[in-house]
């Protein structure tokens, strides 16, 4: 609650001079539009998470319906960064027992649809999945495929909104609108913390513009002295009352994975 009159006159004069200098300077940084600022933040956040190479992890999903009943699913993942394109991922289901051994191979792309294949162990069959299906549920959870398939800046148009504290942590707040017409969302609001540009919260608005879901990120830990990974995601669907918690464990980086670990042959022998 600083009142201007409490600032010493000399300080005020210096501040005014600075303001004047900024106002008349040619092409100053502050001339950045909200769109440019949003894109810059998204690119910076993406850039800070570039170079991790490959990773493996285990994911436990806890699905809760509106009556409070819950069901647990577990998968293990391997992921690999691809230069100039989206990541490659291989996901193997561990539980429930009736889907154990089912596996999903996914090649994310910066633009256009992702490539996805599902392996059905009972039939020994690899089935291509039409991947316009971005808004479909991932494993019956409150997460859609597009929520977990990567945050590449190319997938959105951005607009910086404001800075604000989230649970005491200073954050940049940016609106982003999906470019893909198959997206299930009209827009998303993202909170990135100022210090590390880690995503802390996302609000998802449905095609009609109503708030659909809120996702929050918890328990960030740093790997390789550089890369931050949240170990718990909490998604709440405001329209259905259902929720999903994702818990990540056993993160391991630099496993030496190559393209050969992300083929249909690798998908068929994954377990």
């Amino acid at each position: 609650m600083h009142h201007p009159s409490r600032i010493p006159a000399a300080t005020r004069a210096v501040a005014l001079a600075l303001l004047a200098a900024i106002a008349f300077a040619p092409a100053p940084a502050s001339a950045e539009t909200p769109e440019e600022q949003g894109l810059r933040l998204a690119r910076e956040a993406d850039q800070r998470d570039t170079g991790w190479g490959d990773a493996t992890s285990t994911l436990t999903m806890i699905l809760t319906n509106r009556h409070g009943e819950s069901s647990t699913r577990q998968v293990h993942n391997q992921n690999m960064e691809v230069k100039g394109d989206g990541d490659k991922a291989l996901i193997v289901f561990d539980s429930p027992a009736d889907v154990k051994g089912t596996a999903l191979l996914s090649f994310a792309h910066l633009t256009g649809s992702d490539d996805q294949w599902l392996y059905l162990p009972a039939l020994k069959r690899v089935k291509r999945i039409s991947s316009g299906n971005k808004s479909g549920s991932f494993m019956g959870s409150e997460f859609a495929y597009e929520d977990i398939s990567g945050d590449e800046p190319e997938k959105y148009t951005h607009r910086y909104l404001r800075d604000e504290a989230l649970d005491g942590q200073p954050c940049h707040v940016v609106e982003r609108d999906p470019v893909d017409p198959n997206s299930g969302y009209s827009r998303q609001i993202v909170w990135w913390d100022v210090e590390h540009l880690r995503v802390q919260k996302v609000e998802y608005y449905d095609r009609k513009g109503s708030l659909l879901k809120t996702l929050t990120f918890h328990d960030y830990r740093q790997y390789l002295d550089r890369f931050w990974r949240a170990h718990e995601y909490r998604m709440v669907n405001h329209q259905t009352g259902k929720g999903t918690v994702l818990k990540w464990t056993d993160y391991k980086f630099h496993n030496g994975l190559t393209d050969a670990d992300f083929t249909q042959a690798a998908l068929q022998r994954a377990r």
Partner: peptide, 14 residues
Amino acid sequence: YEYTFPAVWGTYMD
């Protein structure tokens, strides 16, 4: 052909 309607009738049903 096979055609998928994702999230039909405003639900999570495919």
